[in-house]
């Protein structure tokens, strides 16, 4: 078999590493891993031309569970690290994944700027509305009255972020929401997201069986958006606002100029040194 044919023959399993996830049994993040590997296998991408960048948190462990190039960096900075990689290596397919705390709290600034910058990469927030690695504290997507954390025993009292709305306002050119109970549907969304030219944001509703066991009921509430993908931000904003945050599908897609720094053409040192002489 020639190399190209071999690559096409890669299965989702070929995109998994030999490491077994440390995620709790029942965690939605397993389904995100499956969706990513299914999407990559379906797209026939060579493993070495894909990089998966993550930060810190339960979900950010995902990089180590794939067989593509990966970087498990510091808390909240995955998008920044990925942006540097993409700027320097425009040829790579860059995926970024992490949790709601990593992406929307400590990494919130990078999130809005990554949306605005519109580099060609895909960002998956595995949203379980809680910090898992640190034992169940409220995150920026936690409901204000969730009082099960010792850190905020009366609840946060603060309204949560709406990630899709935030992404839209900040300028993301592709916005979708998936659910880990439907890993195949999530994989389909990811194929579209990775194929999209520009910054694609996918919120994956991913229940936490340990700290948010009530989320195991999400599977009874999640439904598909009943409208087509919108390219109109006003319409998309209305759809996001009218929704209870539990509808899945591609909400918004609108191609706009992709940020690609540099020309990639080396014109040599030329006159640079002579600028110094007098």
């Amino acid at each position: 078999m020639d190399q190209a044919a071999q690559q096409i023959a890669l299965t989702p399993k070929d995109f998994k590493s030999a490491l077994k996830p440390v995620w709790c049994p029942g965690c939605g993040d397993f389904a995100v891993l499956n969706a990513i590997t299914k999407a990559l296998a379906f797209m026939g991408l060579p493993r070495e031309e894909v990089a998966l960048i993550s930060g810190i948190g339960c979900s950010s462990r995902i990089a180590a569970y794939t067989s593509v190039y990966g970087f498990h960096g510091v808390h909240g900075r995955a998008l920044a690290l990925a942006s540097g990689l993409k700027a320097a290596r425009g040829d790579l397919t860059v995926l970024v994944a992490g949790g709601d705390g990593d992406g929307l709290s400590i990494g919130g600034n990078h999130f809005i700027h990554a949306c605005r910058r519109n580099m060609d990469m895909t960002y998956i927030i595995m949203d379980n509305e809680v910090y898992g690695m640190t034992k169940g504290q409220a995150s920026p997507t936690t409901a204000p009255d969730w009082a099960d954390s010792k850190l905020t025993p009366h609840g946060t009292g603060i309204r949560p972020f709406q990630p899709a709305g935030l992404a839209l306002t900040a300028g993301a050119s592709f916005i979708a929401r998936g659910f880990t109970g439907d890993p195949n549907g999530l994989a389909k969304i990811l194929v579209a997201a990775i194929g999209h030219k520009g910054f694609s944001f996918v919120q994956a509703l991913s229940p936490c069986p340990t700290f948010r066991p009530e989320q195991m009921l999400w599977k009874h509430h999640v439904k598909a958006f009943d409208q087509e993908i919108s390219s109109n931000p006003v319409e998309a904003a209305q759809r996001i606002q009218a929704d209870d945050g539990m509808s899945t599908g591609i909400i918004y897609q609108n191609e706009r100029p992709v940020f690609r720094p540099g020309t990639g053409v080396d014109n040599g040192m030329g006159s640079i040194e002579s600028e110094f002489t007098i």
Binding site: R77, S83, G84, A87, R89, H110, H113
Partner: peptide, 30 residues
Amino acid sequence: RLEQLGGSLVQAEDELASINMVIGASFGGV
């Protein structure tokens, strides 16, 4: 000058981003 040399410079949103971008680009071999 980086652009002239086939490279690039990205204006980051803050210093946390700029150093992480540097690490990402260097991970990419540059």
